[in-house]
């Protein structure tokens, strides 16, 4: 839900239900890194209500588009994190398998020498 002025769409407050610091703080981070944003912040009006208000003020672009871009950025970052993580885990598992094999072979070597 968007609250803003009819004439000036460069500043608006977005009210998201069923969200908390998890998304709001991450989006605030990506919003702040966008050069089009002059101000952004979020608040949780009451801790019992699952709702956050995200305030976005821009240099002129529609706040809605800027927020959308920020979410898009965050999504792409997540995607990159996931692929990077999966790759690291795969590499780790592969290298460990090799290590385990080496240990086994060393053991067998020592047994043979005994």
């Amino acid at each position: 839900m968007e609250h803003g002025s009819f004439t000036d769409n460069s500043a608006a407050t977005f009210s998201l239900t069923e969200e908390d610091h998890t998304l709001a703080n991450a989006v605030r981070f990506t919003l702040n890194q966008d050069p089009r944003v002059t101000f952004c912040g979020y608040s949780i009006p009451h801790p019992s209500n699952a709702r956050v208000n995200i305030r976005v003020q821009t240099t002129g672009d529609p706040a809605r588009e800027v927020l959308k871009d920020a979410c898009q950025d965050l999504m792409l970052m997540c995607r990159h994190v996931r692929s990077g993580f999966d790759k690291a885990v795969e590499d780790f598992k592969a290298s460990n398998a090799v290590k385990a094999m080496k240990i086994d072979s060393q053991d067998s070597d020592s047994e043979e020498s005994e």
Binding site: E2, F14, L16, E19, T22, L23, A26, V27, R64, L67, K68, C71, Q72, L74, M75, C78, R79, V81, R82, F85, D86
Partner: peptide, 21 residues
């Protein structure tokens, strides 16, 4: 667990994007 967590954050972003457009 970690990859699932990242996926959930992605889904959250997607929800906001679809709601805004």
């Amino acid at each position: 667990l970690f990859t699932e967590a990242v996926k959930i954050l992605e889904d959250k972003c997607e929800r906001v994007i679809t709601e805004l457009s």
